[in-house]
């Protein structure tokens, strides 16, 4: 079980780090084993930053991340290596994840060297092939090739196969679908959903609501680093309370229905109200323009469904 408790991240800005740019503010949620949790947000919401902090690729500014009771942020050296045995990640751009100078096998041999040194060549080969077949790949099709010789879908599956070689309990999937074609998306998505049966907990980070709705049990809606609504997927999508969630659901283009007219929002008109600004500029401005808006409190509107308190009340 992975728990985030009031997690916050500020980036240093300005010369010698004089300014602070808040990217994530007091986010709390959990990832339970055997379930998919979607972290939904638009660009600049901080969702990737959260994923990177969980994977220890970025340092935490304040708040805690605990995995089975152990504080993740303080792990070092051998303890960190053990953590990676349990928690792994898959990223958005499959082509960027592979060192172009080497063949794709390198991602496996790196693991072999670091974690499976004691295993003989034969045993390793068996284990590797089993992992590849578990994600629906034929070893002879993919091993020994360079990244540019394979498709995006195959590369993403290879990354999942890599993660499965270790006995992971949590997988962080950061926008893994967005660079794939529509016909391959669903296969990778089904693959991730299938991991639930193995007891894995998956954090599915995305900006696409329909994908989140398809595979997750829990959903967290994030905007500008703050959680606005979270809970069981069916409840968040079926009974959205926050005006931002409602706006998102109304603006998602659907195959069998047209956009509903947007509810007129307090303040400026039209979709501009929720349009995310270029994060760097918006945040830089905020550091000089006074204190940022306070983090709203989360209120439980029904069992398993929390909403951030809005001025003027939920619409």
């Amino acid at each position: 079980m992975l728990n985030l408790e009031k997690l916050s991240k500020s980036f240093r800005g300005g010369s010698f780090g004089s300014g602070a740019i808040p990217a994530v503010r007091q986010v709390s949620f959990s990832i339970a084993p055997g379930e998919v949790t979607s972290l939904i947000g638009e660009s600049g919401s901080g969702k990737s930053t959260i994923g990177k902090m969980i994977l220890r690729l970025l340092p935490v500014t304040s708040g805690t991340i605990t995995f089975d009771g152990v504080d993740v942020a303080s792990l070092k050296g051998a303890a960190l290596k053990e953590y990676y045995r349990k928690v792994q990640g898959v990223f958005q751009d499959p082509f960027s994840c592979y060192n172009p100078v080497f063949r794709v096998d390198r991602i496996f041999t790196m693991l072999e060297r670091e974690y499976f040194g004691g295993l003989g060549a034969r045993e390793w080969s068996v284990k590797l092939h089993a992992s590849l077949e578990a994600v629906g790949l034929n070893p002879t099709d993919v091993l020994g090739k360079f990244a540019h010789e394979l498709s995006g879908g195959q590369l993403q599956r290879l990354l999942v196969a890599r993660a499965l070689l270790l006995d992971i309990e949590i997988l962080v999937a950061d926008e893994v679908i967005s660079m794939l074609d529509a016909s391959t998306r669903i296969d990778v998505l089904n693959l991730l959903a299938g991991l639930k049966a193995r007891g894995l907990g998956v954090l599915f980070i995305t900006h696409d609501l329909s994908l989140g709705h398809y595979i997750s049990e829990h959903t967290v809606i994030l905007r500008r680093g703050v959680v606005l609504e979270m809970g069981e997927t069916a409840k968040v999508f079926g009974n959205p309370q926050h005006s931002y969630t409602k706006m998102l659901l109304a603006s998602v283009p659907r195959l069998h229905s047209h956009w509903e007219p947007l509810e007129p929002a307090a303040g400026s008109a039209g979709p501009d109200r929720f349009e995310p600004r270029r994060p760097a500029v918006a945040r830089a401005r905020r550091t000089h323009a006074g204190p940022p808006e306070p983090v709203p409190l989360l209120v439980e509107v029904e069992q398993g469904h929390l909403v951030a308190f809005e001025q003027g009340g939920p619409g």
């Binding site: 669903i186 998505l189 089904n190 709705h213 398809y214 997927t233």
Partner: peptide, 16 residues
């Protein structure tokens, strides 16, 4: 193969 809001994996697995 396109998941729409309304379709869930638990109920109906889409295929590519």
């Amino acid at each position: 193969s396109l998941p729409e809001v309304g379709v869930r994996y638990a109920e109906h697995v889409l295929t590519g």
